[in-house]
Amino acid sequence: MNTDPGPRRARDLMTSPVLTVPPDAPREAVAALLVSHGIASAPVVDARGRILGVVDERHLVGADDEAPAAELMTRVPLADPDTPIDELVDHLVEGSRAIPVVREEVPVGIVSRRDVLRRVARGELVAHGERAAGPGAPVVVGVDGSEGSVHALRWGARAARAAGAPLHAVIASGPPDLYGTSSDQVRAARREIEETVRRALGEDATEREELTLDVREGRPARVLVRASEGARLVVVGSRHVDGVGGPPGGSVTAQLVSRAWCPVVAVVPVRPEETGERAGEDAAAVPAP
């Protein structure tokens, strides 16, 4: 039986070295490059090799003959060599034809839809499942500043204490653009996670040795999927439970259920009629199927 999990990171899947074009390359020259090498897109780089954008065959069809690559290119999501394959596939499904893999803004490879299909055809890309948590594996809690994440932190803290595990609070600062995530985004996310932790666990909570606060670049679902690798459990807040048979409400939870490396729990506020108290005074944990 083949137990090889296949490629897991961008570096395992990318084509390298990557063909690039300068910003002043004319449309005809770019088209000739793509056709001669049988590729659909190429990064546009400046004189120092730093990525400016990507030009692909869609941009060339119907464009002005005199238009240089700088006018034809568009910005696309970027990856680094350690980006999980699942994130790359998400971008490709959402519309990107190829994802440049960069190190310090310089393209070191590229992952295209064809690269993914080639591995699928060989049976080398397989769905992943849960991994056993090792010693010291944390309970990870997704934080977004909502009341739901306050309840999730409280529940996660109890679960971590019961298991003798560290508590790891994670917040997403938002997806980067071509120039990365701004320092303002990171500072705002840091304030948000610190304030939410204090609301949930007390004013001195951020000083606890067993608690780690982590601000990560990216969209919430993708950030938490990455954080789930090596975790004991991922806990998220939810406002409600969807219809019978569905996961607890929220697109982040739904994506986690299908992609996380460990069990996922959604903490749902108990309704007033169930507690006799105000809504949100208590919460119940619902294992996400």
Results as ranks from 00 to 15, higher is better:
S228P: 14
A132L: 14
G148L: 02
A121T: 11
A121S: 06
A189P: 12
A42K: 11
S183D: 15
V102K: 02
A200M: 00
P247N: 04
D184M: 14
V197Q: 03
G134C: 09
E277Q: 06
I85L: 13
V126F: 05
V236N: 03
R97N: 15
R50Y: 05
V244Y: 04
V76L: 14
L19N: 08
A285I: 03
V270C: 02
T275R: 05
P176L: 11
R222H: 09
S36P: 13
A165C: 14
G62Y: 10
A285M: 01
D46T: 02
R259E: 05
P176T: 04
S173M: 14
V265P: 04
A47W: 08
I171T: 00
L153M: 13
V101I: 07
P26A: 09
D282A: 03
L33I: 15
L117D: 15
A260S: 03
P84V: 15
A42S: 01
H128C: 10
L60T: 07
A162R: 15
P77E: 12
A69K: 09
A40F: 03
V215R: 09
R216Q: 11
I110C: 07
V257W: 01
E105Q: 09
A47V: 11
E203G: 04
P26F: 06
A231N: 11
M73T: 13
V44P: 01
E229L: 12
P100G: 15
T253G: 14
V45C: 09
D177Q: 13
L88E: 14
A189K: 12
V106L: 10
P272H: 02
G95Q: 04
D115V: 12
M14S: 07
A31P: 04
T83S: 10
G53Q: 06
E94N: 11
A121E: 05
R259F: 03
V267N: 00
R208S: 13
E281S: 01
V35R: 15
H128D: 15
L52M: 12
V106R: 13
V55Y: 13
V215L: 02
T181C: 02
A227N: 12
V235E: 03
S112D: 07
I110Q: 06
E273T: 01
P68N: 06
E57V: 05
L153T: 06
A42E: 03
A188G: 08
A79T: 13
R219C: 02
L201D: 12
R198H: 12
L117M: 07
I99R: 03
R50T: 08
L233N: 00
G174Y: 09
